[in-house]
Protein backbone atom coordinates (compact mmCIF):
# COMPACT_ATOMS: atom_id res chain seq x y z
CA UNK A 1 0.00 0.00 0.00
CA UNK A 2 1.41 3.36 -1.05
CA UNK A 3 1.42 6.52 1.04
CA UNK A 4 -2.01 7.84 2.02
CA UNK A 5 -3.55 10.25 -0.51
CA UNK A 6 -3.64 13.90 0.56
CA UNK A 7 -6.83 15.89 1.00
CA UNK A 8 -6.43 17.54 -2.41
CA UNK A 9 -5.67 14.20 -4.03
CA UNK A 10 -8.88 12.70 -2.66
CA UNK A 11 -10.68 15.86 -3.77
CA UNK A 12 -9.35 15.43 -7.31
CA UNK A 13 -10.37 11.79 -7.24
CA UNK A 14 -13.92 12.85 -6.43
CA UNK A 15 -13.89 15.43 -9.23
CA UNK A 16 -12.85 12.74 -11.72
CA UNK A 17 -15.53 10.44 -10.42
CA UNK A 18 -18.23 13.08 -10.90
CA UNK A 19 -16.91 14.12 -14.32
CA UNK A 20 -17.93 10.70 -15.48
CA UNK A 21 -21.56 11.79 -15.41
CA UNK A 22 -22.89 13.82 -18.28
CA UNK A 23 -25.67 15.71 -16.56
CA UNK A 24 -26.70 16.90 -13.13
CA UNK A 25 -29.17 14.07 -12.70
CA UNK A 26 -26.35 11.54 -12.94
CA UNK A 27 -24.25 13.55 -10.51
CA UNK A 28 -27.09 13.75 -8.00
CA UNK A 29 -27.88 10.05 -8.30
CA UNK A 30 -24.22 9.34 -7.60
CA UNK A 31 -24.20 11.76 -4.66
CA UNK A 32 -27.26 10.06 -3.19
CA UNK A 33 -25.63 6.64 -3.64
CA UNK A 34 -22.57 7.88 -1.79
CA UNK A 35 -24.81 9.07 1.02
CA UNK A 36 -26.44 5.67 1.24
CA UNK A 37 -23.03 4.02 1.63
CA UNK A 38 -21.94 6.33 4.44
CA UNK A 39 -21.49 4.33 7.59
CA UNK A 40 -24.06 5.83 9.87
CA UNK A 41 -23.28 7.52 13.10
CA UNK A 42 -23.88 5.21 16.06
CA UNK A 43 -27.44 5.56 17.23
CA UNK A 44 -26.19 6.57 20.67
CA UNK A 45 -24.67 9.69 19.07
CA UNK A 46 -27.71 10.56 16.97
CA UNK A 47 -28.77 12.93 19.69
CA UNK A 48 -29.18 16.64 20.18
CA UNK A 49 -25.63 16.84 21.54
CA UNK A 50 -24.22 15.91 18.17
CA UNK A 51 -26.90 17.53 16.07
CA UNK A 52 -26.07 20.47 13.89
CA UNK A 53 -29.24 22.37 13.48
CA UNK A 54 -30.26 23.30 9.99
CA UNK A 55 -33.68 24.76 9.47
CA UNK A 56 -34.52 22.22 6.78
CA UNK A 57 -32.23 19.21 7.03
CA UNK A 58 -30.50 17.90 10.13
CA UNK A 59 -26.89 16.82 10.32
CA UNK A 60 -25.27 14.83 13.12
CA UNK A 61 -21.50 14.88 13.48
CA UNK A 62 -19.18 13.23 15.94
CA UNK A 63 -15.40 13.40 16.05
CA UNK A 64 -12.85 11.45 18.04
CA UNK A 65 -9.08 11.75 18.21
CA UNK A 66 -7.15 8.57 17.45
CA UNK A 67 -3.37 8.33 17.03
CA UNK A 68 -3.03 12.00 16.18
CA UNK A 69 -5.83 11.91 13.62
CA UNK A 70 -9.45 13.02 13.75
CA UNK A 71 -12.05 10.37 13.00
CA UNK A 72 -15.44 11.67 11.89
CA UNK A 73 -18.77 9.88 11.79
CA UNK A 74 -21.80 11.73 10.53
CA UNK A 75 -25.32 11.41 9.25
CA UNK A 76 -28.18 13.46 7.86
CA UNK A 77 -31.92 12.95 7.51
CA UNK A 78 -31.92 14.27 3.92
CA UNK A 79 -30.28 12.19 1.20
CA UNK A 80 -28.63 15.01 -0.74
CA UNK A 81 -27.20 16.48 2.43
CA UNK A 82 -26.09 13.01 3.49
CA UNK A 83 -24.25 12.56 0.19
CA UNK A 84 -22.40 15.81 0.74
CA UNK A 85 -21.65 14.80 4.32
CA UNK A 86 -20.23 11.53 2.94
CA UNK A 87 -17.93 13.49 0.59
CA UNK A 88 -16.69 15.70 3.41
CA UNK A 89 -16.04 12.70 5.64
CA UNK A 90 -14.25 10.90 2.81
CA UNK A 91 -11.90 13.83 2.31
CA UNK A 92 -11.34 14.86 5.92
CA UNK A 93 -11.51 11.62 7.85
CA UNK A 94 -8.38 10.32 9.56
CA UNK A 95 -6.40 13.51 9.09
CA UNK A 96 -4.21 15.56 11.36
CA UNK A 97 -6.04 18.57 12.85
CA UNK A 98 -3.77 21.00 11.01
CA UNK A 99 -4.57 19.36 7.68
CA UNK A 100 -8.29 19.55 8.41
CA UNK A 101 -7.94 23.25 9.23
CA UNK A 102 -6.03 23.97 6.04
CA UNK A 103 -8.21 21.76 3.86
CA UNK A 104 -9.08 23.09 0.45
CA UNK A 105 -12.69 22.08 -0.30
CA UNK A 106 -12.59 23.43 -3.82
CA UNK A 107 -13.60 20.04 -5.20
CA UNK A 108 -17.20 20.82 -4.17
CA UNK A 109 -17.13 23.77 -6.54
CA UNK A 110 -15.72 21.63 -9.34
CA UNK A 111 -18.48 19.05 -9.02
CA UNK A 112 -21.04 21.89 -8.95
CA UNK A 113 -22.26 21.20 -5.45
CA UNK A 114 -20.87 24.27 -3.74
CA UNK A 115 -24.29 25.95 -3.74
CA UNK A 116 -25.29 23.51 -0.99
CA UNK A 117 -22.78 25.04 1.38
CA UNK A 118 -24.48 28.43 1.41
CA UNK A 119 -25.87 29.33 4.84
CA UNK A 120 -29.08 30.50 3.12
CA UNK A 121 -29.77 26.87 2.18
CA UNK A 122 -30.28 26.17 5.85
CA UNK A 123 -29.34 22.53 5.46
CA UNK A 124 -26.77 22.43 8.22
CA UNK A 125 -23.77 21.90 5.93
CA UNK A 126 -22.09 25.25 6.43
CA UNK A 127 -22.56 24.78 10.17
CA UNK A 128 -21.11 21.29 9.85
CA UNK A 129 -17.95 22.63 8.23
CA UNK A 130 -17.64 25.19 11.00
CA UNK A 131 -18.06 22.41 13.56
CA UNK A 132 -15.40 20.29 11.80
CA UNK A 133 -12.96 23.20 12.05
CA UNK A 134 -13.84 23.71 15.72
CA UNK A 135 -13.11 20.04 16.42
CA UNK A 136 -9.78 20.42 14.60
CA UNK A 137 -8.83 23.45 16.69
CA UNK A 138 -9.86 21.63 19.86
CA UNK A 139 -7.90 18.47 19.09
CA UNK A 140 -4.88 20.53 18.03
CA UNK A 141 -4.85 22.23 21.41
CA UNK A 142 -5.31 18.87 23.17
CA UNK A 143 -2.40 17.32 21.30
CA UNK A 144 -0.13 20.30 21.93
CA UNK A 145 -0.97 20.26 25.64
CA UNK A 146 -0.14 16.57 26.02
Amino acid sequence: MGPKATISEVGEEIVEEFNFFEDWMGRYEHLIDLGRSLSLIDNQYRTDDYRIRGCQAQVWLRASFQNGNIVFTADSDALITKGLVALLVRVLNNRKPIDVLNADLNFLDKIQMKEHLSPTRKNGLDAMIRQIRLYAVGFMQTSQAS
Partner: peptide, 21 residues
Protein backbone atom coordinates in the same frame (compact mmCIF):
# COMPACT_ATOMS: atom_id res chain seq x y z
CA UNK B 1 -40.13 8.50 2.75
CA UNK B 2 -37.97 11.21 1.21
CA UNK B 3 -37.06 14.39 3.00
CA UNK B 4 -38.89 17.50 1.70
CA UNK B 5 -35.48 19.19 1.33
CA UNK B 6 -34.34 16.58 -1.20
CA UNK B 7 -37.49 16.89 -3.28
CA UNK B 8 -37.40 20.70 -3.28
CA UNK B 9 -33.70 20.69 -4.19
CA UNK B 10 -34.27 18.43 -7.17
CA UNK B 11 -37.35 20.38 -8.29
CA UNK B 12 -35.24 23.53 -8.20
CA UNK B 13 -32.81 21.85 -10.61
CA UNK B 14 -35.80 21.52 -12.96
CA UNK B 15 -36.57 25.23 -12.57
CA UNK B 16 -39.51 24.69 -10.22
CA UNK B 17 -39.81 26.88 -7.13
CA UNK B 18 -41.67 25.16 -4.29
CA UNK B 19 -41.32 25.47 -0.56
CA UNK B 20 -40.07 22.71 1.71
CA UNK B 21 -40.02 22.40 5.46
Amino acid sequence: DSHPYDVATLLDKFGIAVRSG
